[in-house]
Design a protein around this nucleic acid. Structure first.
Lengths: 298, 298
DNA sequence: TGAAATATGATTCATATGTTGCGTTAGCCC
DNA sequence: GGGCTAACGCAACATATGAATCATATTTCA
């Protein structure tokens, strides 16, 4: 795990306790980790739009002896990344005909952005975090799955597949009042929430509600410091960048799929048996189209 | 190792002209490029076993204005490596390899499969096909969007975003009878259908129905020869391979997003104005959460 | 060998950096 | 509104840093 994750988690945990200016500085740290390693405090301060002293206070607030100790973490990351990753770059060429067309260029960019998103998603989330999420979900009495608006499809997909091998998932509908669904959520339950900026107000509310009730929270989100990221027991990060006007949900879907795969992989025979039963049922109800030369792919 | 190559070559060329102590310092630079970027001259001097001033003299001997200019080269390398290769593939490979865990291997495979899926998707679909699909949709009176079961989230997402800039899309609900929705579909309408094997029976039916009525058909599917692929005016191909037990919907989502981006890019000012109106409306209804200390990062 | 030229490192200096102290401001509770 | 606490930022401080100076050591060549 790139250790930036550690410091990021630490910052996220303490984020509530930080003062507004310190939060601004903290955001800057996470947004520009390399600069932190390289530049001086005063330079960073200028970039972040805060006085230098804020970084000193931030370091202390995060239990570092001094600012140098904090910076040392970021410098350590740089060293590690460089020694590990080496310096070469994977040559990636989407073999689009060199049309020179603007539209073709756009399409190419769109797809490269998705590749980057997936890469980013899987580098930002150490398998241990996925495993931690799977742990929580396995032990859950009920698993509420929540995603509003553009995030709802991801939640719905997760729920659909999840129900193939386990019956305790509840999909919170996209319309209507959340509280109707979450009213009796308790400490034995888990809430999987999917949300990226801009965060829908009721999703934030739901996260707080869950937190107050002791319900464990797993968040698929784009900002550790967002209200949802801060509250979550497990944060799974996604990048949403794209040349399009609308954020990408590809990384969320990819994460959701990875979680599902993990759950089944760990669920063993019971999960497999459940899946088999689901398939039988679907076949029995003639859900799928059949043809002479066609056979149902598993 | 990319741009460090430049400085390395430069040093190699001048190496003969350097004094013995400067050579020692120069060797140290090339052996520890990351440290040069991070540490102070004095610290390096200690590590290299030369007095600090040697680095100043070395910088001048290499035609740099001062030591800072020399160090800036190394810092630039760090930045470049991190932003571009940075957290990417190779680092991740090594990370995962170091664990040796089976679960980690699974996670790695899952993500690599998605990368392959995206690449495959974009190599299988020439931009012209996306453009053809966009053409059809633009001219459509109504645009029916259909996806059953696991493909429904993709359809729903497409519909949600599409409605932000155009009002003529109709999402066929996942439950219930298709015919209720498509009854009056005609030759001026377009049906966007998302379906991969195993094909749900009613999706196939819907495709036939549309075809009979003269409704144009755009298919996001995994097989050109499937009943849906055969009937479609435009086929957009997706790969769905994954080590998971369930097929991946990531490529469909990526395609859907690409289509949306194309539609907006071609929609011009009208589309942008519609999006703006949508945003205003959402803000007005206070859909999104707002925070005081939040500010747009530069 | 001896003188000139070069190389080297200790010392010093001006500046940059991280930190501290203190006065001011802003928010909050009674 | 008044009193209180927390937050903030300016200015001063001690230290660290890069560079200049100069004396000494080493090399070079007659």
């Amino acid at each position: 795990m790139s250790p930036t994750v550690d410091i990021a988690q630490h910052i996220a945990q303490r984020f509530e306790t930080l003062t507004p200016q310190q939060r601004r500085a903290a955001r800057f740290l996470l947004d520009h980790p390399t600069e932190v390693a390289l530049k001086s405090m005063r330079e960073l301060a200028q970039g972040a739009g805060v006085p230098p002293v804020t970084f000193v206070r931030l370091a202390r607030a995060l239990d570092f002896a001094d600012y140098n100790a904090l910076r040392a973490v970021f410098q350590g990351d740089v060293r590690q990344d460089r020694t590990r990753a080496g310096f070469s770059q994977k040559a990636r060429d989407l073999q689009l005909r060199s049309g020179g067309d603007k539209t073709q260029a756009l399409v190419k960019e769109l797809f490269e952005a998705e590749l980057d998103n997936i890469e980013l998603t899987f580098s930002q989330n150490h398998p241990d975090q996925l495993i931690a999420a799977a742990d929580l979900m396995e032990r859950a009495r009920r698993l509420f799955v929540l995603g509003r608006r553009s995030c709802h499809p991801t939640a719905a997909f997760f729920h659909y597949v999840h129900r193939l091998f386990r019956a305790n998932a509840v999909l919170v509908p996209d319309g209507g009042q959340l509280v109707d669904c979450l009213r009796d959520a308790g400490p034995d339950d888990v809430l999987l929430v999917v949300s990226v900026a801009p965060y829908t107000a009721d999703t934030v509310e739901a996260a707080r509600w869950a937190r107050e009730r002791g319900t464990r929270l797993i968040a698929i989100t784009d900002d550790r410091l967002s209200p949802i990221g801060r509250l979550a027991d497990v944060v799974l990060m996604v990048g949403t960048a794209t040349p399009s006007f609308f954020h990408s949900i590809v990384p969320m879907v990819a994460l959701a799929q990875a979680l599902l795969a993990l759950l089944v992989a760990r669920g063993g025979d019971a999960a497999l048996a459940a899946i088999e039963a689901s398939e039988l049922q679907l076949n029995r109800f003639q859900v799928y189209w059949t043809d002479g030369d066609q056979e149902p792919t598993p």
